[in-house]
Write a protein that binds this DNA or RNA. Structure first.
Lengths: 204, 204
DNA sequence: TAGATTGTTAATCGATTAACAATC
DNA sequence: TAGATTGTTAATCGATTAACAATC
């Protein structure tokens, strides 16, 4: 599926997708790379190059068929393939992510959650069970998730990461402000909300 | 404060900061760029170049004084200057962010929150008042925040963004899956959690 | 056909890495 | 001093942009 698209192009695909989906179908059967570029404040050649990776062909003079382009982007991003994910750390952020509806658009399904706090075990959040962290292995065997969301405190992040990798998880989205070490066969991405806001502030 | 550091370097500074803070003070009075690079899986020249922006000088043969480097990074990132921020959208994510303790490390203080849901008005989350969105102007005048966190549904994001800009906010961290349009004097950054996880999945 | 827009090849730009002199 | 490490200058690499031929 993923060929040799640069990661930086890959990151823009959801932006195009969101934009295209936000357009009303009536007036926008066709859309040109120039129009997309202008709306999103970027260069039109870059838009065309990015879109070319999805192998959705545009037509000279008219542009791209909006619905086809959406379908191609969704296809390329794997939105139609269901992907199981687990979540570790049912604090405020963890609960918010369990309740968040946006994952379904990308075919992602959080199947189960884990926490070390006995008070949280047995809870259900948005229909997902909160299990003791010891059951992680069992959950991975049961649901075969490749993805995990890590929403534990910084102090626990590395050890939970190790458990996830040992259990066979292949991709980790880490919200703890720690750079995780993991086998290089595992893809780890980091979202540091506080740091992002601080960077934003220093750009002002 | 912010000179001509490339934004991509700026984004790495919090990573260094987190790593340096995670080291115990005992064994690590000095640390070399090579050691940092190895720990974080990056090139050592890049580390030195990045650190040079903070104007903390290292010493040949010994490296950098860890505490000095931390101080320089914190200084460069403005962690010691208190920065007020407001939050709009007190849903699951908004509440999680209001309760999140990580902002103080960067000197960021969320002073007040806003929502359009009457049921939420008057609530307090982590000691912060939830006010009607109509009071945004008043709040900005009262607290003079430059930053805002946008945690409203996609459908409301652009109109709330317009209100924030009208009120005088200069930087917006947007969690809604929408590309916001704003005057170019306003810095807008986007965190799309679902898209991030989908990208991670397609890298596997 | 003429004109607009795509897709691609070449040029530019910026970031990373390599080489190396300075220095503690 | 010798050796390790910094900081900087030059080379490389990759991404964006510009130019343009293809085409509907």
């Amino acid at each position: 599926m993923t060929r040799d698209i640069p990661e930086i192009s890959l990151q823009r695909l959801p932006v195009y997708l969101n934009y295209l989906k936000s357009l009303s179908g009536e007036d926008n059967k066709y859309i040109s790379s120039g129009a997309i570029a202008q709306a999103l404040g970027m260069g039109e050649v870059l838009v065309r190059k990015d879109l070319a990776y999805t192998s959705s062909a545009g037509r000279p003079k008219v542009g791209y068929v909006r619905t086809e382009l959406i379908a191609a982007l969704e296809d390329y991003l794997g939105c139609n393939q269901r992907k199981a994910a687990v979540l570790v750390g049912v604090g405020g952020l963890g609960r918010a992510l369990l309740s968040y509806g946006g994952f379904v658009n990308y075919g992602i399904d959080i199947v189960e959650a884990y926490d070390s706090d006995p008070a949280k075990i047995g809870m259900e959040v948005a229909g997902k069970k909160v299990c003791p962290i010891e059951e992680l292995e069992r959950g991975v065997q049961e649901y075969k998730p490749h993805l995990a969301i890590l929403a534990v405190p910084a102090s626990a992040a590395q050890s939970v990461c190790d458990m996830l990798v040992a259990a066979g998880i292949k991709g980790i989205l880490n919200f703890a402000p720690v750079q995780l070490k993991a086998d290089e066969s595992v893809v780890v991405r980091h979202i540091d909300v506080a740091a992002s806001l601080a960077i934003l502030a220093s750009l002002l």
